[in-house]
């Protein structure tokens, strides 16, 4: 079984995003970039399926500028067999990304697509669901457990108030939540080996997808700041202030 893992290069999760002075966007100049944390979990799950003998091939794919090849090499170092880079300098929306990925799904015909539930930059949480819709597949979003047997994937989903398990007919799309697994680190020999693994580059505009923007970014602002509070001496003072000043208890 072939597994496709779409991944994204994003701001490192430890870095605080800053808004540009002209309020046009977030400033990413000289900011440390990394693999989106949910994508790491997706790669890990695919590699585990391969180690378990369920998957035969793991393909990582990303869409973005040339620098995103760095994240594809990370995926290869973690154990992906090959990588596809859909190259574009345009800032794409989830719908565009899903449409481009649908083309790769058509081309590679993976039985399973595993991707992160959201990227920590745009926080959209859309691509997996859109890809499932566009490819006519069932979707198992926010997965905390994935079991594959007899042409079916059982996905346990993290939902408000508990866990829901659904059975999806393969081929299917799964999006990862935090508790699915704990991603490994790439070893130095594997990082070296990854440099020799195949990485195919495809120009985004060669795939016949309309990439016209559907959303205009009007402005980006800093969120309203909370004014600093006070440090209380003890529990008694805290309870008193909550009762008499804040009036919340």
């Amino acid at each position: 079984m072939k597994v496709l893992v779409p991944i994204k290069r994003v701001i490192d999760y430890n870095v605080k995003a800053r808004v540009k002075a002209d309020n046009s966007d977030v400033d990413l100049t000289n900011v440390k970039m990394a693999l989106n944390p949910f994508c790491e979990i997706a790669i890990e799950e695919a590699i585990r399926l391969k180690e378990a003998g369920t998957a035969t091939e793991v393909i990582a794919v990303t869409i973005g500028a040339k620098a995103s090849q760095e994240q594809l090499r990370t995926a290869l170092a973690l154990g992906a067999d090959k990588a596809i880079h859909i190259e574009t300098d345009e800032k794409l929306e989830s719908l565009h990304v899903a449409k481009l990925l649908a083309k790769i799904v058509e081309q590679e015909a993976p039985e399973l697509v595993i991707l992160g539930k959201q990227s920590i930059d745009s926080d959209n949480n859309q691509t997996g669901q859109m890809l499932a819709a566009l490819t006519g597949r069932g979707q198992g979003t926010f997965a905390s457990k994935v079991d594959i047997a007899n042409g079916t994937v059982n996905v346990t989903r993290e939902v408000d108030g508990g866990l829901q398990t659904v059975a999806l007919k393969l081929p299917a799309v799964v999006t990862t939540d935090l508790r699915l697994n704990e991603p490994r680190y790439a070893s130095l020999p594997n990082i070296m080996k990854a440099k020799r693994k195949p990485l195919e580059v495809i120009a985004a505009d060669s795939l016949g997808v309309d990439l016209t923007p559907r959303i205009e970014l009007v402005a980006v602002h800093e969120p309203a700041k909370r004014s600093g509070g006070i440090i209380v001496d003890d529990v008694a003072q805290l309870v008193d202030l909550l009762k008499t000043q804040a009036k919340v208890i």
Binding site: A17, V26, S122, E216, V218, A219, V220, H221, E222
Partner: peptide, 10 residues
């Protein structure tokens, strides 16, 4: 966006 570190008007 960005974990609430920025508010986008779209």
């Amino acid at each position: 966006i960005y974990a609430g570190n920025a508010i986008a008007t779209v």
